[in-house]
């Protein structure tokens, strides 16, 4: 093989690896961005000041994590790409978050159920991602895991309070769990990029977390006097960029300034 051929093949390999990593990062970071965006809608509208502040804290953590991931992805993309290009300038089909995190804040029960169902997964994911052979991803996960454990404690405590609080709260949180349950299975689906990232030793095999996830969730729901929904059919699509109808409105808000005033610095 000539030197030119070999160097060109190496270049292709590096580009491939970067592209896999970038797609893998979107699969994790888009969840943090979209959930952070949803939570930030609630700032100033919480049931009391203490929960308002706690919800905002979680949003801040998630957006902070998002920035870490996107800055890394921007670096991999190279050129002039910035974290904001990634956050704001993709089309809806290019966002790879799971459907669960884009679901609207119908009432506080939905906010808590969505958070709980995601946090339980998020903790397990970051526990494993800390061992990634990619040092940047491992570092982001190490920092994030402390925050996410706090999120999980917050949402689990509220699941218990609402589940074992009043008949009204029990009914409301059960309704939210039942509605959002259909989006849980997608958390464990593996995209092509996910599989390649696992093969490269940088990604986490999310499909392997499924059994433990449902065991942990079931335990907490039991302890909160809540029923575990029986469901055969699950929704999916977010990881392929096929979102629910809620997503377009969320992005319209998110992207408003960047789309209205293209190319400006803020």
């Amino acid at each position: 093989m000539s030197t030119i051929e070999s160097s060109s093949r190496m270049k292709t390999n590096t580009t491939d690896i970067s592209e896999v990593l970038i797609q893998y990062i979107y699969g994790i970071a888009d969840n943090a961005l979209i959930l952070g965006q949803r939570l930030s809608e609630l700032c100033g509208h919480g049931p009391n000041l203490e929960t308002d502040i706690a919800g905002t804290n979680i949003a801040l953590d998630l957006l902070g994590q998002t920035r870490g991931y996107y800055q890394y992805a921007a670096q991999l993309k190279g050129g002039d790409t910035t974290e904001d290009d990634i956050a704001y300038l993709r089309t809806e089909r290019e966002y790879k978050n799971v459907l669960l995190v884009e679901q609207p804040n119908k009432h506080f029960g939905y906010v808590i159920a969505r958070q709980f169902l995601y946090d339980m997964f998020h903790v397990m994911l970051l526990e494993k991602l800390q061992n990634s052979q990619d040092p940047t991803l491992a570092a982001i996960a190490k920092k994030g895991i402390k925050e996410v454990r706090y999120h999980q404690r917050f949402s689990s405590d509220w699941i218990k309070r609402l589940g074992d609080g009043t008949p009204e709260s029990h009914e409301k949180i059960q309704e939210a769990i039942n509605t959002l349950w259909t989006y849980t299975d997608e958390l464990f689906h593996m995209t092509e990029a996910d599989k390649k990232a696992v093969d490269m030793g940088v990604g986490v095999d999310a499909s392997a977390l499924k059994g433990e996830y449902y065991t942990r969730v079931r335990e907490l729901l039991d302890a909160s006097t809540l029923e575990v929904p029986e469901m055969k059919w699950f929704q999916k699509g977010g990881k392929q960029g096929i979102h629910t109808e809620h997503m377009g409105y969320l992005l319209a808000d998110l992207q408003y300034m960047q789309r209205t005033y293209p190319g400006m610095k803020w």
């Binding site: 100033g44 049931p47 506080f108 309070r161 609402l162 074992d164 609080g165 009043t166 009204e168 709260s169």
Partner: peptide
Amino acid sequence: NAWEEGTWVRDAAVAY
């Protein structure tokens, strides 16, 4: 609205 819609949440916390 935030206060009224939060009533059931605050009640649940007290009951729990």
